[in-house]
């Protein structure tokens, strides 16, 4: 239970890395006239690792595909898999990250393995600024008692 309560903090860290403008250089909005549904960049078979100050990998997110819509400021990640140094592992069919509302959502089945248990549900909503994680339906969790 303890680890699962920190999951929303982990998602907050992960979301900072998906703002890829920082890695790929700032986009000059003034020159852009983005169509709302125009994808401005893709990533395929990608893996992003965040390194902590002490040089250790704090988490890694891999995925088959990432599309980013500049106008809507949304990223859609196909087959994301998140592994953290705390032993968390999350995978699902797809995740949508909305930079405006700072929410991650999926309507697909979500599978989470933590050091002391597992959690699965259908649909997930993470409100990053509120540190709130909602498992939308079909919630099944098992906690190993230490």
């Amino acid at each position: 239970m303890k680890h699962l309560l920190t999951l929303s903090a982990v998602l907050l860290l992960i979301l900072l890395i998906t703002q890829l403008e920082d890695y790929l250089g700032k986009t000059d909005f003034s020159r852009l006239t983005p169509q709302k549904d125009q994808i401005d960049y893709y990533l395929s078979d990608f893996s992003i690792m965040a390194v902590a100050a002490d040089g250790t990998v704090s988490y890694e997110m891999a995925g088959r595909h990432l599309s980013h819509w500049q106008g809507k400021r949304q990223s859609r990640i196909i087959a994301p898999e998140v592994n953290t140094s705390q032993g968390f592992k999350l995978h699902t069919d797809h995740l949508l990250y909305d930079q405006v509302t700072r929410e991650i959502t999926t309507d697909a089945d979500v599978f989470i393995n933590a050091p002391n248990g597992t959690m699965q549900s259908t649909g997930l909503t993470a409100k990053l600024d509120d540190n709130l994680l909602r498992f939308d339906s079909n919630v099944r969790s098992t906690y190993q008692v230490k």
């Binding site: 239970m1 699962l4 309560l5 540190n131 994680l133 919630v139 098992t142 008692v145």
Partner: peptide
């Protein structure tokens, strides 16, 4: 024994410290 919890939905609120 392991604890199994099932429900229609669940919310983890880190700030409030509630599940």
């Amino acid at each position: 024994a392991p604890v199994q919890i099932e429900a229609d939905s669940a919310v983890f609120d880190k700030l409030a410290g509630t599940a």
